[in-house]
Design a protein around this nucleic acid. Structure first.
Length: 486
RNA sequence: UCCCCGAUAGCUCAGUCGGUAGAGCAGGUGGCUGUUAACCACCGAGUCGCAGGUUCGAGUCCUGCUCGGGGAGCCA
């Protein structure tokens, strides 16, 4: 294989750790497009490694816009005269290139800097059936070519934003003394109260199906039924009982048959768990945390936010700005029901104390009544999970959901039941096997402390910040029923 | 799992009353211009999602299936 004019002579260096080529791609010495467009390299000779986005060639001058993933913006490469660069003819959108040239500051053009090319090499040709055009594609089409869609403007922006926001989350918690915990992906608890699970097995299913034999789970890999986790919370509680403040941030799996714009079968969730922290204290943290993510986006992701504001959801920036300047709304479930009952509104589903809030109810509260994020607390005990702390009224639990316009529930959390007897009773009432969860009960026996935690849906947060309306478009390779390609 | 909508060129779509297929973009060729979603001319490109039915005749009407989209439930 030939890569442009560079030969592929590899040699081992003296240390024996690195390999490099003599006529290499200049990985370490190339200049990123982002640096060129920020004016750091004016009048210097640079090497650019990237992909052609568009080409315009005439008799006296030609232009190729090159993107290398470092930013939304392309470098404009100028070829003058085009006849000196025969490789130009072979360039179409998608072709990978190595260009050597000089950075020049220009006036009165769309871009402030250009690169006047001295040398052009084609690294990899792009076949003519390349499905990505210079024009806009529908997100539906791009989902079908998820292997190529990262090369588009929107998905470039989304993926860079995802990376920055992940980093921001780690930084936020690390700066506050939280420890990052890796909770298990494989679990044997079959009822964490958060939905259907994917079973993990090494049993030869097709063979067994033919034999019509009764399954002996003792022969499976773990000697019992195992699943992919639906939450790191239970293990998180154990760690928080030792380290004080911890957080998890990893993939989470739900096997529900959900076909909506805000559900995935595999998504990323961030779950902090705080010892000696009650619900009201946690709510202060949640609001500070969410506002931090918003102001981080506005201040440190200008390129991304400007793109979202222009192409995805006009006015997004203004909405976010107004949210960090005001307080979140905060009501109890009981008051929320009263508001909904008085709303004089024909809801499809009835409103009533003891019934769970439906999507349309949540939407009404966050999008119309409060028009901003709202904490809803103290839900009826019967509709919430066994581990939530029971209030003195014995009817409600110290749960909290954060509802936001556009996305719905973005955070769900609670103060945990730290009293051994209460927790045990709840578990019995909900039909859980006490023996299987003895480890979870044990921390209530040995120096129990009030503690609280919540889960933030990472993709939903990205949706909220960006205005992207389908969760399948804020994760590189979405998994949902009947779809796990790429 | 339930309800609604859709599937026509590589992409985005049009296709009237049932009469055998069109545009823009992309690609090719040529031209032109410091161009910038460049522009102009010409060219090639289609088992109209699949299977069956009604009809002299189906992209168009009917049935089933597949796939895609939206909504509901479940939740983050």
């Amino acid at each position: 294989m030939t890569l442009g004019n560079s030969s592929l002579k590899w040699r081992k260096n003296l240390v024996g750790v690195f390999y490099w080529r003599e006529m290499q791609m200049d990985y370490f010495t190339r200049t990123r497009v982002k640096e060129i467009n920020s004016g750091q390299k004016v009048d210097q000779e640079v090497i650019i490694l990237g992909w052609a986005r568009t080409k315009r060639v005439s008799k006296n001058v030609g232009f190729v816009e090159v993107n290398d993933g470092s930013s939304l913006h392309n470098a404009q490469i100028v070829f003058s005269p085009p006849g000196d660069f025969p490789e130009l003819e072979r360039i179409i959108t998608g072709t990978s290139l190595r260009i050597v040239g000089k950075v020049v500051k220009v006036e009165g053009r769309e871009q402030a800097y250009e690169v006047h090319a001295d040398k052009l090499e084609i690294v990899g040709e792009c076949l003519h059936d390349y499905p990505l055009q210079k024009k806009r594609h529908t997100f539906e089409f791009l989902r079908e070519i998820a292997h190529l869609r990262p090369r588009t403007n929107t998905f470039g922006v989304v993926n860079r934003f995802r990376s920055k926001l992940s980093h921001c989350i780690h930084e936020y918690y690390q700066n506050r003394g939280f420890y990052y915990i890796h909770t298990p992906i494989i679990t044997t608890s079959d009822c964490e109260g958060a939905g259907d699970l994917f079973q993990v097995t090494t049993l030869p299913l097709e063979e067994l199906a033919d034999q019509k034999k009764k399954l002996d789970m003792n022969e499976d890999f773990f000697g019992e039924k195992a699943y992919l986790t639906v939450s790191g919370q239970l293990e998180g509680e154990l760690l928080c009982s030792a380290l004080g403040d911890i957080y998890t941030f990893g993939p989470t799996f739900r096997a529900e048959q959900s076909y909506t714009t805000r559900h995935l079968s595999e998504f990323w969730m961030m779950e902090p768990e705080m010892a000696f922290c009650d619900l009201d204290e946690m709510i202060i943290l949640i609001e500070d945390f969410l506002k931090h993510l918003i102001s981080f986006s506005l201040e440190n992701c200008e390129e991304e936010m400007a793109f979202f504001n222009r192409w995805i959801d006009k006015g997004r920036q203004k909405v976010l700005q107004s949210i960090i300047e005001s307080d979140f709304a905060k009501i109890t479930y009981t008051d929320a029901v009263k508001i909904l009952e008085k709303a004089n509104r024909d809801f499809e589903f009835p409103v009533g104390w003891g019934r769970d809030l439906q999507s349309e109810h949540e939407r009404f509260l966050s999008e119309e009544y409060f028009k901003k994020p709202v904490f809803v607390t103290d839900y009826p005990r019967d509709i919430k999970a066994f581990y939530m702390r029971v209030n003195d009224d014995e009817k409600t639990v110290r749960a909290v959901d954060v509802l936001v316009p556009l996305v719905g529930e973005i955070v769900g959390g609670s103060q945990r039941e730290e009293r051994y007897d209460y927790l045990k009773n709840n578990m019995l009432q909900q039909g859980l096997d006490i023996e299987e969860y003895q480890w979870f009960l044990d921390i209530r026996k040995y120096g129990t402390v009030p503690h609280s935690g919540f889960g933030l849906g990472f993709e939903r947060m990205i949706m909220y910040l960006s205005g992207m309306s389908n969760i399948r478009d804020v994760i590189p390779f979405p998994r949902f029923p009947r779809s796990a390609k790429f």
